[in-house]
Design a protein around this nucleic acid. Structure first.
Length: 298
DNA sequence: CGGCTCCCCTGTAAGC
DNA sequence: TGCTTACAGGGGAGCC
């Protein structure tokens, strides 16, 4: 499932193709991709508005905050907003290529070079989302990044230059929930999903159920820095999965399994101490820890 | 505020 | 063997 490093890989791939490209036609194969879990029924007018809003526009350089992605339109007032959800992928195709089974939308594009290509959004589970949205600068973050209005509540992520992890650590310290739940709270710090939350806690040797407010600030700092580190490493390994006709974003064939310390390693020995990795549930999410390395009191 | 639960969806896997 | 059920996960809504 795409978290920050995977979404950034996708963004970089799109950046090779989209800037300056004009959208000649939009085809929505499944309008549910415009909806959300609570708004699944899409009025035909809404689907129409999406298509007409994009058609004729030119794309600018794709941007990202956390797991959220958007492609500003050339007027710099609106953007194609994207969340990959669990299984969302972008693929670049020749216009006539056969459609992948789970293609939900297809943008016929005309590049400045004169080349035509097809930008396709593929999403098996339809947890992903596409939209068209106004760009705004959220007031609550110390950042000047214009983001789609729907994403205004999303906090900056650890890879943004203006993100101050020390300040984030102080915010985390005010939370009474389990540290893992705080890591997954995209309004505190964005980009961390279930996998990297487990990895960051394992690296920093912190128990996922530890109450954030009761952790020493140095431990919180260590967790946040570990999260940043592990995501940077993943990005370095996964950043090259894009070629002329194919975007690999689903993680199934990437670095995932190779470099993970605890995630998905239930029953296997801890790489540091050999203790068997345990699985528990935190905030409804499957959670993987080494009971020896991540003692509750630490 | 925080901690639940449910929902969206579908491929996979376990259980009967 | 073939069916049914459980489960996974990100994010948002609603409730206590």
């Amino acid at each position: 499932m795409p978290e920050l490093p995977e979404v950034e890989s996708v963004r970089r791939g799109l950046a090779e193709w989209l800037p300056g490209a004009r959208v000649d036609a939009v085809r929505l194969y499944d309008p549910r991709i415009l909806g959300t879990a609570s708004q699944r029924i899409i009025a035909p007018a809404a689907a129409e508005a999406f298509a007409t809003g994009i058609t004729g526009a030119a794309f600018d350089v794709p941007a990202r905050r956390g797991k959220f992605l958007w492609v500003p339109l050339a007027d710099h007032r609106r953007a194609l907003s994207v969340h990959l959800g669990m299984s969302g992928q972008f693929r670049i195709h020749e216009p006539g290529d056969p459609l992948h089974r789970h293609t939900r939308a297809d943008f016929a594009c005309f590049a400045p070079s004169g080349r035509e290509f097809s930008l396709r959004f593929v999403d098996q589970r339809i947890f992903g989302h596409l939209g068209i949205d106004e760009l705004t600068v959220p007031a609550q973050w110390n950042s000047h990044l214009p983001v789609p209005a729907q994403m205004a509540h999303i906090a900056p992520d650890p890879l943004e230059a203006s993100t101050d992890l020390e300040a984030i650590a102080r915010v985390v310290k005010t939370k009474r929930s389990a540290i893992k739940s705080v890591l997954l709270d995209q309004s505190v710090l964005s980009g961390i999903g279930n996998i990297y939350a487990d990895e960051a806690l394992y690296r920093a040797r912190v128990h996922p159920l530890a109450q954030a407010a009761r952790l020493r600030i140095s431990r919180v700092r260590a967790v946040l820095e570990s999260a940043r580190e592990v995501m940077l490493e993943a990005l370095a390994q996964g950043g090259t999965s894009f070629d002329a006709l194919y975007v690999n974003v689903n993680g199934e064939s990437g670095y995932f399994d190779r470099s993970l310390g605890v995630y998905g390693r239930t029953g296997q020995p801890c790489l540091r101490c050999g203790t068997l990795i345990t699985r528990l549930v935190v905030g409804g999410r499957g959670t993987h820890i080494c009971l020896q390395c991540q003692k509750p009191q630490r």
